[in-house]
Every structure is written in C-alpha cells, then in structure tokens.
Simulated assay, not measured.
Amino acid sequence: MTERSEMLKKVQQLNFVMIDAGLFLNNQPESPAALELFRKYQELHRKAKMEYEEAFGPLDYDGIRTERDGWSWIHRPWPWEVED
C-alpha cells in the first residue's frame, strides 16, 4: 500500500468513528463519554485530513486553499483515481 493510500485510509477510518459516535450522540446526547470520544476523533480526523491534503491535495471543497493554489484541485487525480 502506498503512503497516499495509507493516509487516505486513516482519514476514512477516523471519519467513520466520528460519524458512529455522532449517531450514538443523537440517541444519547447527555453522554459525557460519547461526547469526549466524538471530540477526540473529530480532532484526529481534522489533523489526518489536513496532513493528507498538504501532501496530496484537497479531498473536498473544504480543503481547497484558493489563496495559495487558486482553483487547482481539478488538475490533480481524484483520490479514487490513484492506483496503488
């Protein structure tokens, strides 16, 4: 597995945990443990996504840095187009 693939997989895994914790919080909004877990994985996801985007470009509109790169994300392969 390439470094790019490993980093993307990490972003996806952290996103899954964050979504799962969010769904739990929808049913148990008063759970301090679940809220802490959500915050932890939200921050880990934010960092992993930022590291990926610094190395390989944006994953979504939120990652576009127009002040630095203009609208350059259309010139890179999409994450699913990169072969291992």
Rank of each mutant, 00 (worst) to 15 (best):
Q12Y: 02
Q12H: 04
Q12N: 12
Q12G: 02
L14E: 06
N15V: 01
N15Y: 02
M18T: 12
M18E: 10
M18S: 09
M18P: 00
I19R: 15
D20T: 14
D20K: 11
A21Q: 12
A21H: 07
A21V: 08
G22I: 08
G22F: 02
G22K: 04
F24I: 09
L25D: 01
L25T: 02
N26A: 15
Q28F: 03
Q28W: 04
P29C: 04
E30I: 00
E30Q: 11
S31I: 04
S31W: 05
P32C: 03
A33F: 03
A33W: 02
A33D: 11
A34W: 07
A34N: 05
A34V: 03
L35E: 13
L35M: 12
L35H: 12
E36Q: 14
E36D: 13
L37W: 00
L37D: 12
L37A: 15
F38R: 12
F38M: 11
R39T: 13
R39L: 10
Y41S: 06
Q42G: 14
E43N: 11
E43L: 12
L44K: 13
L44I: 04
L44V: 02
H45N: 14
H45R: 11
R46M: 11
K47R: 15
K47Q: 15
A48W: 01
M50F: 06
E51V: 05
Y52R: 09
Y52M: 09
E53M: 10
E53P: 07
E54T: 08
E54D: 14
E54A: 07
F56D: 06
F56Q: 03
F56W: 09
P58S: 11
L59Q: 11
L59R: 09
D60L: 03
D60T: 04
D60N: 08
